[in-house]
Design a protein around this nucleic acid. Structure first.
Lengths: 167, 167
DNA sequence: ACCTGAACACCGTTCAAGT
DNA sequence: ACCTGAACACCGTTCAAGT
């Protein structure tokens, strides 16, 4: 992956997590990277393809971070909690797939597929920790809602309170 | 409130809950209502003022629906769960303040204030049911996350599973 | 009091043209 | 292979002009 492509995706990810799908333009990214907006379209023909690529990379990074916590001996629930908590601390910013999922019906299938995979993988991962599907769904929903409210209220302690005795 | 203003707000609310803040235009609303987009600006000078007004009306309606359930003998937690479940069934659509809260840093203060009030009032309401602030925050986060994931996955049973034994 | 057409700078997208 | 300027229809917003 070229440096330009990587810089475009970095800029897009930062802007999506702060302002959502509609919170940035191709001209914004071009200015960040130092090219013209038509050049961004050369690498990512449509906004949907760009956002889908960013979401895929985000999903993989989150999964790796969770696996690393688990490998270090952290319980699965605590591992997910820590990774969400770390994401909130950067900004404060929303979960990328949470901000996209909130406007799911406005997005193209290539984007919603990535959002679905993020949610599905999260629940599956929590189930490997011994949780029932119902409990895993509840825990993941709580994490997603907690980061949403905490980022909207700009108060990370809300996340801490909402997830304190999550199990 | 005039019929035109009401029709504009109805159209905006439906469109926001499906596609978020960026999911509709003044020209969309004008076409829905049967006027020109400049007329929508006559009633709501900016998009922020329009969305803030829609959010305020939504918040009041939700609070009334919850109070009605409680007056009918439902527990506070169950009342909130039922109201969120009913909102999900219309569409399926997101919680209006949830879809706005997800892009909070991109919105004007007049809008984020309404979103904050929605979250704050929800937690306060749950506390009247005997929950600690921590528990009330967790319950509200779970409801918000559950409607987000269920609407993104277009599967209301996800909401039911995530909130089945909420307490 | 309410509505409108026309204009402004912006947006995603396309494309022919450059290196 | 990568970048660009110019064009298109769209967007929020403004405003002078209508009834």
């Amino acid at each position: 992956m070229s440096e330009t492509v990587e810089a475009i995706m970095d800029s897009a990810e930062r802007r999506i997590r702060a302002g959502g799908y509609g919170g940035f333009s191709f001209r914004d990214l071009a200015a960040d990277v130092g090219v013209k907006s038509a050049s961004v379209h050369y690498h990512f023909p449509t906004k949907g393809e760009l956002v889908a690529a960013v979401a895929r990379r985000y999903n993989d990074r989150v999964a790796q971070a969770v696996d690393a916590e688990i490998a270090a001996g952290t319980s699965v629930v605590k591992a997910w909690r820590e990774v969400f908590r770390g994401a909130l601390a950067e900004g404060p910013a929303m979960c990328l797939c949470g901000s996209l999922g909130a406007i799911s019906s406005e997005l193209t299938p290539e984007v919603t597929d990535e959002v679905r995979h993020f949610f599905d993988r999260g629940v599956e991962s929590l189930m490997t920790g011994g949780l029932s599907r119902e409990d895993a769904t509840r825990v993941f929903a709580t994490l997603e809602g907690a980061i949403l409210i905490a980022s909207a209220r700009n108060d990370a302690t809300i996340f801490d309170a909402a997830t304190a005795d999550l199990k």
